[in-house]
Design a protein around this nucleic acid. Structure first.
Lengths: 193, 193, 193, 193
DNA sequence: TATGAATGAGGCTTCATTCAT
DNA sequence: TATGAATGAAGCCTCATTCAT
């Protein structure tokens, strides 16, 4: 009788393993997207996950499905931060968004890919929703200017993407700080304009 | 007797075609980079240019050589603008830079590719040089704030890249305008901050 | 429903075919190396084996891997002969070595290729080992001069290679006989010197 | 008015240059065969010779024609040695033959190529002729055993080829010496059997 | 249901050969 | 007659995707 906690041993372990496989695939994809970019071969992901090629296709029919799910998990994390609900939440969220942007440059490649294929996808909607309440709280606490909108926050994030992608690897954070200063965010205080 | 004005008809048109071929390849590459991105198959470029695979390799041994030449032409155009030398030059330059950024998003992908392979390549140096004098003139004419530096202009451009790349094709210009407003440039007047 | 005994019909025959495919590839490689030399196109091998290009790469990532495996099988056969253990074994071995040399001139080309890439590979070591005992037995039985060493046997073999490679196909055996006479081996008796 | 001693300057210098071009091609081919083997790209030869591709084809329609001509020059040199006519001539010839064998391993590759395509070519005939007289002189002077025939000398040479081709580059001469000892030639004295 | 081998299209690159000038 | 660019076939290799077991 096979050990269900053991994966990738070539034994069909039945439906019970499906959830574990899914998690393993997502973890593998996350790390490989970060290491080798969005276009990393799918079989490398399957290999690192310890599953067969077929399983990967069962769970995620296209590369885009896989990538969207990986990045969805980031949204889950961000939503958890947003739910904490004090006035510093917005700052935490922003900090985490910038870090994710720096870490996962694969996201931008996915976005390019998705633009052509997934007209319906507007990943920003979810971001918009999770930012609304924390930004309101920050407004009330006087931590950000009253005029700052959610859309401007998102736009700034996309500007950060541009800077991240075009910076030499060893100067990314320095350039990001410079660009945030340009829009009037002093990175130390994270107090916009 | 073959018609020498006809391209891509499978006939060896002889060395006289070399210059025309080179131009045809560059034009094909320019349009395909814009349409399909930096990683468009090289044989698609050769096909659109109406030349054999080998000709493309003779003129441009690597994809990077080809891309650098294409973008070099952009620099040439920008330098021509810069040379005109009146106080509105900076505005013209900036407008053209933003347009190029919107049109040729392949440039960003090339930059990523070049980063790994062409340590010596710093495309921004050339940009920096051609901007210096026009920005000085704009300073003197009071058209831009005295504090605005060339590096800030370049950084802004990279932020624009980020917005371009992550925007749905039909809303690119709208988003770019929004982001320029964010950094205090009102796109209508091009009067920064 | 596809006929699983039929090869190369464009149908995915599943993993069960792996072992059969491997054998088919090796057989195809063996015959094509003999017919067309070491540098025969790999896709010709895949075609004769009735498999896709990718399968060949899965089993043998490089041409050298494939060739080494093919020739390994020759070593296996020789070692089986060597294991039989009577005093005539050396004669059998030698006869087979000469025949293999004549049949598989691709071996020499592979050796040239391997020299540059596989510093660790010393194919002769395995030959040396399998010859040692049979030569000793032949010494004891007085079938070969006491002074004949394993290295001399190997050197003679390489001289035979030279003659094989430079002889017109229809006179190979005649020339080999002549050259063995030169070193004092009368091919009829196989009684060296 | 072009300088006829100057080659590869892109100017059509008329028929007078034909002989110089031919010599340049042969010299380039000789060095490149030695450096990179028989299958060196033909355009590399044309480039080193400083001529266009077309000229190479005019003079030598096939790779084999070129190679045969290159090696013919070796025969010319050997015939010059043979013509000197004293009793040590055979020894000089033999020494030069072994050296050529070691230097020009491209010859063996050409031989493999020629086997399939040039049934009529028996390069050995010319060798045989130039060796006959010197070997006779050596016989008369008692420098070689009376039984040694020209064909045996040629066969030995081909055995040397085999050893050369299969030896690690840094041990070629050592192995050749060993093999000559095997056939009873002590390399120091060059006194066969 | 999971495995992982097989398929084969597609992209890259190299040359032998041709041919306009 | 010489040049050297153009052609395009051919080989190499890499995956995305399928499917027998």
């Amino acid at each position: 009788m096979p050990d269900p906690t053991q994966r990738g041993n070539g034994i069909n372990r039945g439906p019970a393993a499906a959830a574990a496989n899914r998690r393993a695939i997502l973890a593998a994809a996350r790390s490989l997207f970060a290491e080798r970019g969005y276009h990393v071969p799918l079989n490398a992901i399957a290999r690192r996950a310890g599953v067969g090629q077929g399983v990967l296709y069962r769970h995620f029919p296209t590369r885009l499905d896989l990538a969207l799910t990986v990045f969805d998990e980031n949204f889950n994390e961000l939503e958890a931060i947003a739910a904490s609900g004090d006035s510093a939440t917005f700052e935490h969220l922003w900090r985490r968004l910038v870090d994710l942007t720096i870490e996962v440059s694969a996201f931008i490649e996915m976005a390019v890919d998705a633009r052509g294929r997934l007209a319906a996808y507007d990943g920003t909607q979810r971001l918009r929703e999770l930012l609304t309440e924390p930004l309101g709280a920050a407004h009330e606490a006087g931590l950000v200017p009253a005029s700052l909108t959610v859309d401007e926050v998102l736009l700034t994030l996309r500007m950060v993407y541009g800077v991240v992608t075009t910076s030499p690897a060893d100067r990314v954070r320095e350039h990001v700080s410079g660009s945030l200063r340009l829009v009037g965010w002093t990175p130390d205080e994270r107090a916009p304009r």
